[in-house]
């Protein structure tokens, strides 16, 4: 399904948040590539920077450093018109929340809104057809469409939000933890809905989750994040057979001891000291780890950020 054509590229993306007291480095030099039609997963725990990265990829947040390129055009250089087009092509679905949709609007109107904003349909009839098409894809009935958010269940609401995101037939769908806060049955329904829609429309998916099992099921390639950095990246299958980064292996092996043994707890992305953020938990940590490890290529389409794997290739 996926081709080699790279549509969305994030290059050395960094994001800093400044409050009156401190600087929070939420994201540090993350590089991401998305190809047409491929399924990618972004895995990490809370505070790893995955939501920040996701929002930057959708350009809801602007990166403090680094470039975002869509189909060859740098987003920072786009004019209003081009940006508008970008917005129809790359969509972001946030984590489940109470106010995922305007509580005063009917679901039908909320889903129709993107069409109306971009003037994509010429008649009510056409609009109705498009909405029914999408609703069907996501298993939403006409009855659902008539209601308001408060009358829908968690899973139904989330599907409505997804419907709104894909009604413009985007090329990339970024779903931020679409399944957390929902029960397992609903979780699988949502995943199924997204993948089903993907079959029909053909968009690439970037699924953000902290659940490895989900990531394994729905992705071809995987990015693992920790402490605001991408620590490992490669084909999902490869990573699961042979995880390289200590953090990745601890996730896969559910090494609870490792996961819990922290001397310094990262506060939602604040990392005061430079160096590999995982060194406080890593059983392999040594002096070297006080300097941030570079990205090391480990063969085709596989990188890892850890001193264990030698010096970086001079590329």
């Amino acid at each position: 399904m996926s081709s080699e054509e790279r549509i969305l590229i994030g290059c050395e993306l960094s994001k800093e948040f400044r409050t009156r007291k401190r600087i929070i480095r939420a994201l540090q030099r993350a590089s991401v590539e998305i190809r047409k039609g491929e399924r990618v997963a972004l895995v990490g725990e809370s505070g790893s920077g995955k939501t920040t990265l996701a929002k930057i990829l959708a350009y809801i947040l602007k990166p403090s450093e680094g470039r975002l390129v869509f189909r060859g055009k740098n987003l920072a250089e786009m004019d209003k018109r081009e940006l508008r087009i970008f917005r129809t092509k790359v969509q972001y679905v946030p984590q489940y929340s109470d106010l995922a949709l305007d509580p005063l609007w009917h679901i039908y109107d909320s889903i129709a809104e993107p069409l109306r904003i971009h003037g994509m349909v010429e008649s009510r009839q056409e609009e109705l057809e498009r909405i029914l098409e999408i609703a069907d894809l996501l298993n939403l009935s006409i009855d659902h469409l008539r209601r308001k958010p408060r009358d829908l269940s968690g899973g139904e609401l989330q599907r409505a939000v997804i419907a709104r995101a894909i009604i413009l037939k985007p090329e990339v769908l970024i779903a931020d933890e679409p399944t957390s806060m929902l029960d397992p049955v609903t979780q699988s329904r949502i995943i199924w809905a997204i993948m089903n829609a993907r079959e029909k429309i053909g968009f690439s998916t970037i699924l953000i989750t902290h659940e490895l099992s989900i990531a394994k099921a729905i992705s071809e390639r995987l990015y693992v994040m920790f402490g605001g950095r991408i620590v490992e990246f490669g084909f999902t299958e490869d990573i699961f057979t042979e995880p390289l980064h200590p953090y990745t292996s601890s996730l896969i092996e559910r090494d609870v001891y490792l996961l819990m043994n922290e001397e310094k707890i990262a506060e939602g992305g604040v990392f005061e000291s430079p160096g590999c953020e995982f060194r406080f938990r890593c059983r392999f940590a040594e002096e070297k780890c006080k300097t941030p490890p570079p990205e090391i290529r480990m063969g085709k389409k596989r990188t890892v950020r850890c001193w264990l794997y030698g010096e970086p290739d001079r590329v």
Binding site: R87, Q91, S97, A100, H118
Partner: peptide
């Protein structure tokens, strides 16, 4: 503030809605 920080307003920005549009059609009614 509550409305402006909510997920759906974020989503509206992601769709490409203009700020004036958001204020008139979503913030004021709420």
């Amino acid at each position: 503030v509550q409305i402006a920080n909510s997920a759906f307003v974020e989503g509206l920005i992601a769709i490409g809605a203009g700020r004036g549009y958001i204020v008139i059609k979503h913030i004021l009614p709420n």
